[in-house]
Design a protein around this nucleic acid. Structure first.
Length: 275
DNA sequence: AGCCAGGGACTCC
DNA sequence: GGAGTCCATGGC
Protein backbone atom coordinates (compact mmCIF):
# COMPACT_ATOMS: atom_id res chain seq x y z
CA UNK A 1 0.00 0.00 0.00
CA UNK A 2 1.40 3.30 -1.07
CA UNK A 3 0.93 5.96 1.56
CA UNK A 4 2.72 8.91 3.08
CA UNK A 5 2.63 10.28 6.61
CA UNK A 6 3.07 13.95 7.30
CA UNK A 7 0.71 14.72 10.12
CA UNK A 8 -2.15 13.26 8.15
CA UNK A 9 -1.92 9.97 6.31
CA UNK A 10 -2.17 10.28 2.53
CA UNK A 11 -3.35 7.19 0.65
CA UNK A 12 -2.34 7.01 -3.00
CA UNK A 13 -3.42 3.58 -4.20
CA UNK A 14 -7.16 4.03 -4.12
CA UNK A 15 -7.94 0.64 -5.72
CA UNK A 16 -7.08 -1.09 -2.43
CA UNK A 17 -8.55 1.55 -0.15
CA UNK A 18 -12.16 2.70 -0.27
CA UNK A 19 -13.66 4.18 2.92
CA UNK A 20 -17.18 3.24 1.88
CA UNK A 21 -16.17 -0.39 1.40
CA UNK A 22 -14.06 -0.46 4.55
CA UNK A 23 -16.59 1.10 6.88
CA UNK A 24 -19.86 -0.11 5.42
CA UNK A 25 -18.89 -3.73 4.96
CA UNK A 26 -20.20 -4.63 8.42
CA UNK A 27 -16.97 -5.05 10.36
CA UNK A 28 -17.32 -1.83 12.35
CA UNK A 29 -20.25 0.16 13.66
CA UNK A 30 -18.88 3.38 15.15
CA UNK A 31 -18.62 5.67 12.17
CA UNK A 32 -20.55 8.46 10.45
CA UNK A 33 -20.84 9.64 6.89
CA UNK A 34 -20.91 13.42 6.55
CA UNK A 35 -21.19 14.73 3.02
CA UNK A 36 -18.40 12.96 1.15
CA UNK A 37 -16.33 12.29 4.24
CA UNK A 38 -16.31 9.52 6.80
CA UNK A 39 -15.54 9.83 10.49
CA UNK A 40 -14.53 6.66 12.30
CA UNK A 41 -14.22 6.21 16.06
CA UNK A 42 -12.02 3.54 17.60
CA UNK A 43 -11.43 3.21 21.34
CA UNK A 44 -10.67 6.82 22.41
CA UNK A 45 -9.50 7.91 18.96
CA UNK A 46 -11.04 9.45 15.90
CA UNK A 47 -10.10 9.82 12.25
CA UNK A 48 -11.68 11.75 9.40
CA UNK A 49 -11.27 10.28 5.93
CA UNK A 50 -11.47 12.84 3.16
CA UNK A 51 -11.64 12.25 -0.55
CA UNK A 52 -9.18 14.41 -2.43
CA UNK A 53 -8.29 14.60 -6.09
CA UNK A 54 -6.09 11.55 -6.54
CA UNK A 55 -5.93 10.27 -3.01
CA UNK A 56 -7.59 9.92 0.37
CA UNK A 57 -6.48 11.96 3.34
CA UNK A 58 -6.82 10.52 6.86
CA UNK A 59 -6.88 13.35 9.36
CA UNK A 60 -6.04 12.28 12.90
CA UNK A 61 -4.01 13.12 15.97
CA UNK A 62 -2.60 9.61 16.05
CA UNK A 63 -1.30 8.56 12.66
CA UNK A 64 0.56 5.58 14.08
CA UNK A 65 -2.63 4.14 15.54
CA UNK A 66 -4.56 4.46 12.30
CA UNK A 67 -1.77 3.07 10.11
CA UNK A 68 -2.20 -0.10 12.10
CA UNK A 69 -6.00 0.25 12.36
CA UNK A 70 -6.43 0.45 8.59
CA UNK A 71 -3.90 -2.36 8.10
CA UNK A 72 -1.96 -0.16 5.70
CA UNK A 73 1.11 -2.39 5.60
CA UNK A 74 -0.74 -5.39 4.19
CA UNK A 75 -0.79 -5.80 0.42
CA UNK A 76 -4.45 -6.26 -0.47
CA UNK A 77 -3.79 -6.75 -4.16
CA UNK A 78 -2.01 -9.90 -3.15
CA UNK A 79 -4.74 -10.84 -0.68
CA UNK A 80 -7.30 -10.58 -3.46
CA UNK A 81 -5.19 -12.67 -5.81
CA UNK A 82 -4.84 -15.35 -3.16
CA UNK A 83 -8.60 -15.86 -2.77
CA UNK A 84 -9.61 -15.33 -6.37
CA UNK A 85 -10.59 -18.93 -6.83
CA UNK A 86 -12.25 -20.56 -9.80
CA UNK A 87 -15.60 -19.35 -8.56
CA UNK A 88 -17.01 -16.51 -10.62
CA UNK A 89 -19.05 -15.26 -7.67
CA UNK A 90 -15.87 -14.80 -5.65
CA UNK A 91 -14.34 -12.67 -8.36
CA UNK A 92 -17.51 -10.59 -8.52
CA UNK A 93 -17.52 -10.15 -4.76
CA UNK A 94 -13.92 -8.98 -4.81
CA UNK A 95 -14.63 -6.51 -7.60
CA UNK A 96 -17.66 -5.20 -5.76
CA UNK A 97 -15.78 -4.63 -2.49
CA UNK A 98 -12.39 -4.03 -4.05
CA UNK A 99 -11.42 -1.38 -1.51
CA UNK A 100 -12.15 -3.44 1.59
CA UNK A 101 -9.49 -3.76 4.26
CA UNK A 102 -9.89 -5.73 7.49
CA UNK A 103 -9.58 -3.27 10.33
CA UNK A 104 -7.52 -3.97 13.44
CA UNK A 105 -9.97 -2.91 16.08
CA UNK A 106 -9.64 -2.65 19.83
CA UNK A 107 -10.28 -6.08 21.41
CA UNK A 108 -12.56 -4.94 24.24
CA UNK A 109 -14.60 -2.67 22.00
CA UNK A 110 -14.89 -5.50 19.48
CA UNK A 111 -16.11 -7.96 22.11
CA UNK A 112 -18.83 -5.59 23.28
CA UNK A 113 -19.76 -4.59 19.73
CA UNK A 114 -20.32 -8.11 18.44
CA UNK A 115 -22.24 -9.24 21.50
CA UNK A 116 -24.59 -6.37 20.69
CA UNK A 117 -24.65 -7.45 17.04
CA UNK A 118 -26.19 -10.87 17.65
CA UNK A 119 -29.62 -11.24 16.04
CA UNK A 120 -29.73 -7.49 15.52
CA UNK A 121 -29.63 -5.07 12.61
CA UNK A 122 -26.78 -2.72 11.81
CA UNK A 123 -28.70 0.55 12.35
CA UNK A 124 -29.74 -0.50 15.81
CA UNK A 125 -26.30 -1.90 16.67
CA UNK A 126 -24.83 1.51 15.84
CA UNK A 127 -27.37 3.28 17.99
CA UNK A 128 -26.69 1.07 21.00
CA UNK A 129 -22.91 1.40 20.67
CA UNK A 130 -23.02 5.19 20.39
CA UNK A 131 -25.24 5.23 23.47
CA UNK A 132 -22.69 3.14 25.37
CA UNK A 133 -20.05 5.70 24.43
CA UNK A 134 -22.18 8.63 25.53
CA UNK A 135 -23.20 7.11 28.80
CA UNK A 136 -19.94 5.50 29.94
CA UNK A 137 -17.13 6.85 27.79
CA UNK A 138 -14.91 9.81 28.55
CA UNK A 139 -15.90 12.96 26.69
CA UNK A 140 -13.35 14.10 24.15
CA UNK A 141 -13.49 17.37 22.27
CA UNK A 142 -16.41 16.55 20.05
CA UNK A 143 -17.20 12.91 20.72
CA UNK A 144 -17.15 10.23 23.39
CA UNK A 145 -14.45 7.59 23.72
CA UNK A 146 -15.49 3.96 23.90
CA UNK A 147 -15.36 3.04 27.59
CA UNK A 148 -12.60 0.80 28.87
CA UNK A 149 -13.53 -2.23 30.96
CA UNK A 150 -12.70 -0.22 34.06
CA UNK A 151 -15.22 2.40 32.97
CA UNK A 152 -17.92 0.07 31.69
CA UNK A 153 -17.92 -2.26 34.66
CA UNK A 154 -19.88 0.25 36.73
CA UNK A 155 -22.86 -0.25 34.38
CA UNK A 156 -25.80 -2.23 35.69
CA UNK A 157 -27.98 -4.56 33.67
CA UNK A 158 -30.70 -1.90 33.87
CA UNK A 159 -28.32 0.67 32.38
CA UNK A 160 -27.81 -1.54 29.34
CA UNK A 161 -31.56 -2.05 29.03
CA UNK A 162 -32.22 1.70 29.09
CA UNK A 163 -29.72 2.08 26.28
CA UNK A 164 -31.87 -0.28 24.23
CA UNK A 165 -29.76 -3.42 24.30
CA UNK A 166 -32.82 -5.58 24.94
CA UNK A 167 -32.10 -9.09 26.13
CA UNK A 168 -28.40 -8.58 25.44
CA UNK A 169 -28.23 -6.33 28.51
CA UNK A 170 -27.74 -9.39 30.67
CA UNK A 171 -24.90 -10.61 28.44
CA UNK A 172 -23.10 -7.28 28.53
CA UNK A 173 -23.38 -7.10 32.29
CA UNK A 174 -22.08 -10.62 32.81
CA UNK A 175 -19.25 -10.25 30.32
CA UNK A 176 -17.95 -7.31 32.35
CA UNK A 177 -18.05 -9.56 35.43
CA UNK A 178 -16.17 -12.29 33.56
CA UNK A 179 -13.56 -9.97 32.09
CA UNK A 180 -12.79 -8.40 35.47
CA UNK A 181 -11.10 -11.70 36.32
CA UNK A 182 -9.12 -11.88 33.08
CA UNK A 183 -6.09 -10.13 31.64
CA UNK A 184 -7.40 -9.27 28.19
CA UNK A 185 -4.02 -7.95 27.08
CA UNK A 186 -2.69 -11.52 27.20
CA UNK A 187 -5.33 -12.94 24.90
CA UNK A 188 -3.59 -11.60 21.80
CA UNK A 189 -0.72 -14.02 22.49
CA UNK A 190 -2.94 -17.12 22.44
CA UNK A 191 -3.17 -19.43 19.42
CA UNK A 192 -6.49 -19.18 17.63
CA UNK A 193 -8.01 -22.35 19.08
CA UNK A 194 -7.28 -21.28 22.65
CA UNK A 195 -8.47 -17.74 22.02
CA UNK A 196 -11.63 -19.25 20.56
CA UNK A 197 -12.29 -21.19 23.77
CA UNK A 198 -11.73 -18.09 25.89
CA UNK A 199 -14.24 -16.16 23.81
CA UNK A 200 -16.81 -18.97 23.76
CA UNK A 201 -16.75 -18.97 27.56
CA UNK A 202 -18.15 -15.43 27.55
CA UNK A 203 -21.90 -15.03 28.02
CA UNK A 204 -23.49 -14.05 24.73
CA UNK A 205 -20.59 -15.27 22.61
CA UNK A 206 -21.20 -18.26 20.35
CA UNK A 207 -19.08 -19.42 17.41
CA UNK A 208 -20.17 -16.71 14.99
CA UNK A 209 -19.58 -13.84 17.40
CA UNK A 210 -16.29 -15.39 18.50
CA UNK A 211 -15.18 -15.55 14.87
CA UNK A 212 -16.02 -11.88 14.33
CA UNK A 213 -14.11 -10.88 17.45
CA UNK A 214 -11.09 -12.94 16.38
CA UNK A 215 -11.16 -11.53 12.85
CA UNK A 216 -11.77 -7.86 13.62
CA UNK A 217 -10.30 -7.55 17.12
CA UNK A 218 -7.43 -10.04 17.08
CA UNK A 219 -6.39 -10.08 13.40
CA UNK A 220 -7.01 -13.80 12.95
CA UNK A 221 -7.66 -14.89 9.40
CA UNK A 222 -8.16 -18.60 10.07
CA UNK A 223 -11.79 -18.10 11.06
CA UNK A 224 -15.04 -17.86 9.08
CA UNK A 225 -17.98 -16.08 10.72
CA UNK A 226 -21.20 -17.64 9.40
CA UNK A 227 -24.24 -15.46 9.88
CA UNK A 228 -27.54 -15.29 8.05
CA UNK A 229 -25.95 -13.57 5.02
CA UNK A 230 -23.12 -16.06 4.62
CA UNK A 231 -25.68 -18.83 4.93
CA UNK A 232 -27.51 -17.22 1.99
CA UNK A 233 -24.27 -17.03 -0.02
CA UNK A 234 -23.53 -20.65 0.72
CA UNK A 235 -26.96 -21.84 -0.31
CA UNK A 236 -26.79 -19.73 -3.44
CA UNK A 237 -23.35 -20.79 -4.68
CA UNK A 238 -22.43 -24.05 -2.92
CA UNK A 239 -25.18 -26.29 -1.52
CA UNK A 240 -28.57 -26.00 0.11
CA UNK A 241 -27.29 -26.31 3.67
CA UNK A 242 -28.52 -24.68 6.86
CA UNK A 243 -26.23 -26.26 9.46
CA UNK A 244 -23.93 -23.33 10.15
CA UNK A 245 -21.32 -25.52 11.76
CA UNK A 246 -21.01 -27.55 8.56
CA UNK A 247 -21.03 -24.41 6.42
CA UNK A 248 -18.19 -23.00 8.51
CA UNK A 249 -16.13 -26.18 8.22
CA UNK A 250 -16.55 -26.33 4.47
CA UNK A 251 -15.69 -22.68 3.93
CA UNK A 252 -12.65 -22.95 6.20
CA UNK A 253 -11.52 -25.97 4.20
CA UNK A 254 -11.98 -24.00 0.97
CA UNK A 255 -10.26 -20.74 1.94
CA UNK A 256 -7.86 -21.88 4.69
CA UNK A 257 -5.74 -19.18 6.26
CA UNK A 258 -7.32 -16.55 4.03
CA UNK A 259 -10.84 -17.33 5.25
CA UNK A 260 -11.32 -14.05 7.09
CA UNK A 261 -10.62 -11.97 4.01
CA UNK A 262 -12.81 -14.16 1.78
CA UNK A 263 -15.63 -13.96 4.26
CA UNK A 264 -15.65 -10.18 4.27
CA UNK A 265 -15.83 -9.76 0.49
CA UNK A 266 -18.64 -12.33 0.34
CA UNK A 267 -20.56 -10.78 3.22
CA UNK A 268 -20.39 -7.27 1.78
CA UNK A 269 -21.49 -8.22 -1.71
CA UNK A 270 -24.28 -10.50 -0.55
CA UNK A 271 -25.64 -7.96 1.90
CA UNK A 272 -25.65 -5.37 -0.84
CA UNK A 273 -27.30 -7.97 -3.07
CA UNK A 274 -25.27 -7.60 -6.24
CA UNK A 275 -26.38 -9.76 -9.14
C1' DA B 1 -49.01 -7.30 10.40
C1' DG B 2 -45.52 -10.19 10.23
C1' DC B 3 -40.80 -11.12 9.14
C1' DC B 4 -36.02 -10.28 9.71
C1' DA B 5 -31.66 -8.60 11.65
C1' DG B 6 -23.68 -10.12 11.36
C1' DG B 7 -27.33 -15.66 17.14
C1' DG B 8 -27.07 -17.53 21.62
C1' DA B 9 -28.76 -19.61 26.03
C1' DC B 10 -31.42 -22.96 27.89
C1' DT B 11 -33.86 -27.21 28.13
C1' DC B 12 -34.91 -31.31 26.76
C1' DC B 13 -33.32 -36.07 24.75
C1' DG C 1 -23.75 -33.75 20.24
C1' DG C 2 -28.34 -32.26 17.93
C1' DA C 3 -33.30 -30.19 17.61
C1' DG C 4 -36.78 -26.70 19.60
C1' DT C 5 -37.92 -22.66 21.86
C1' DC C 6 -37.48 -18.21 23.69
C1' DC C 7 -35.47 -13.86 23.69
C1' DA C 8 -36.06 -7.22 23.04
C1' DT C 9 -36.38 -4.02 19.68
C1' DG C 10 -36.77 -1.38 15.42
C1' DG C 11 -36.94 -1.21 10.27
C1' DC C 12 -39.22 -2.52 6.34
Amino acid sequence: MKYKVEKDIIIYSTEDFNPEHILECGQVFSYEKIDDNYIVYSADKKAVIKREENCYRIVTDDAKYFINYFDLNTNYSQVKNNIKSNHLFMEKAINFGSGIRILKQDPFETIISFIVSANNNIKRIQKILFAIREKFGVKQEKYYAFPTLEQLKIASEEDFKKIGAGYRAKYLYSVCRQLEKEDLSMWAELPTNQLNLKLLSLMGVGQKVADCIMLFGFSRQDVFPVDTWIEKVYCRYFNEEHDRKKIRQNLLATFGKNSGYAQQYLFYSQRSDIK
